[in-house]
């Protein structure tokens, strides 16, 4: 008994956008480590081996953020919009499957951050009366049409009740 994964995939370019974001995180991590070495060099007599442990950590984090996480995230991301519900799957360690009935949807927004905008991508966020569900990295056109489609479906199913 297996639930089929949602049919639609998000844009492949998302992986690159996530990698860029990972690089930014990694830069901060390396800056922190660098601070440790600078402090050690000029001010305090801190042990060297801790610096290397921190460096090791930073490298490990950089690798996960830049290489591993975007790949895994891409594997699991999927969504599907039908007449009656929204079905989203995502996750890295925990795979989360969110089901949102159309009737419960209160409003739909599209938004785009700086990195995503670089790739002409947008995030669709769907809000119910208590929860928010996001589908990132959709082509701006797709996001826009999905927004209209969901708004339309949500309205329709409201009339049904």
């Amino acid at each position: 008994m297996r639930i089929p994964r949602p049919k639609e995939r998000i844009d492949e370019k998302a992986k690159i956008a996530w990698r860029i974001r990972g690089c930014i995180y990694a830069t901060f991590e390396f800056l922190l480590v660098a601070t440790y070495f600078i402090v050690r060099r000029f001010w305090l007599d801190l042990p060297l081996f801790i610096g290397f442990i921190l460096l090791g950590f930073a490298i490990l984090l950089a690798v996960t953020h830049v290489l591993i996480i975007p790949t895994i995230r891409m594997i699991y991301w999927g969504y599907e919009i039908t007449e009656d519900a929204l079905d989203i799957q995502h996750g890295i360690i925990v795979i989360k499957r969110s089901l949102v009935p159309m009737v419960r949807i209160q409003h739909v927004d599209t938004e785009h951050g700086p990195i995503m905008r670089l790739f002409n991508l947008a995030t669709l966020s769907v809000s119910t009366a208590g929860t928010v569900h996001k589908i990132p990295a959709l082509k701006q056109k797709t996001a826009e049409s999905l927004r209209r489609q969901i708004a339309h479906l949500a309205l329709l199913s409201e009339e049904d009740v």
Binding site: V94, I95, R97, R104
Partner: peptide, 16 residues
Amino acid sequence: KPHIQSMLLNRSILQR
């Protein structure tokens, strides 16, 4: 059922 806003079915690696 009409009062459920959304449902989440989560599976961690170990759970899978």
